[in-house]
Nucleic acid binder design. Sequence first.
DNA 1: CCAAACTTAGAGCATTCACTCAAAATAGAG
DNA 2: CTCTATTTTGAGTGAATGCTCTAAGTTTGG
Lengths: 186, 186
Amino acid sequence: MARYQAGIRTEERILEATRELLGEVGLEGTTLKAICDRAGVRAGSFYNLFESKDDAVMQVVKDAIRAVDPHPDKDVPDSLRELIEAFILFITGQPEVARVYLKIAISGATNGSLGDQIIGHHQRRVARFAAAIGREHPEMDEEAAVARAEIILAALSGLAFMWMIQPGFDYASRARLVSQSSLAPE
Amino acid sequence: MARYQAGIRTEERILEATRELLGEVGLEGTTLKAICDRAGVRAGSFYNLFESKDDAVMQVVKDAIRAVDPHPDKDVPDSLRELIEAFILFITGQPEVARVYLKIAISGATNGSLGDQIIGHHQRRVARFAAAIGREHPEMDEEAAVARAEIILAALSGLAFMWMIQPGFDYASRARLVSQSSLAPE
DNA sequence: CCAAACTTAGAGCATTCACTCAAAATAGAG
DNA sequence: CTCTATTTTGAGTGAATGCTCTAAGTTTGG
């Protein structure tokens, strides 16, 4: 299954087109035709490289998350502060991709693989936050750490929600308040 | 424009069908055909009574909000605690309609009238929360009251988000913690 | 019972969507 | 250069979608 250069470049063009469209016109406007038009490709080529439209969208979302992941190589444990900063960067750095993420997550897992994958990612994120909290507060039992992780993520998500509705909302600084208050002793 | 009884009953059946469908299959599954099938009505009748599909969805969402509104008659000012309880009731009482609300809000106002209306409603809600806070804390200036209202709504929304992703999440009690902490002096 | 107003039916329209497929074109290894 | 594997094309499919329109039917007030 040796790839040719042409195919690899086409794949990149398609992902770039998908990323741009998600940013410009949201998930609704990111149709297959729109992706193909922008990438300068016909539908057949798209399906030679991707399983489905959702496949391409999911890759873009995953890339965006990965781009701000503090330690994509899994061996280094991350601090809560780093994780929170990564979340802030994810929301502020690619707001429209983040919007898609939240939207799909809210839509639930009934919609098929896209929702399933994002919810799965979210739950792994909760676990990662909880692990960091557990590491920094050894006196806390696991249940309490998970509860705190959920609250922190709820706050970060809720602030993101407000920001997306009210463009003037100062997301980053409010989110850092969450960081401070959550890092303080109970 | 005197209404006949038949038309009024049909309108109610359509709204009931829409409400049920939003709860059972979400916004995606609530198609015109599904609504009409369940209401036992043809498309023509639907459009005799509603401007568009979004019109019917919007009425359902508005009704749900209104049903838990502490003081629909505007003269009585509401307390912050009442407003928070109303929000909790909105989320827990009709979770799937609330899901639709959050989803449309996140989708933004570019999607047309549905998004516009929900964002408008949201902003009125912020103002109402801020007014209640201002009433209960006369020493606080207006800007601070608005900021606090935004944070409270962000927390409530974020918790709702978590609940929708993790069904085991105990929304009501966590949300009441927001209530307590936000009612405490600064 | 009449007539005007309102309601309903239901076929059908125009559009959009994600996706398929067989054949032509091209790239790359030997 | 040749031969094979990969890539690209682009018309086409079938299934949805929201919505329209006209003719027929029903309700209501007088």
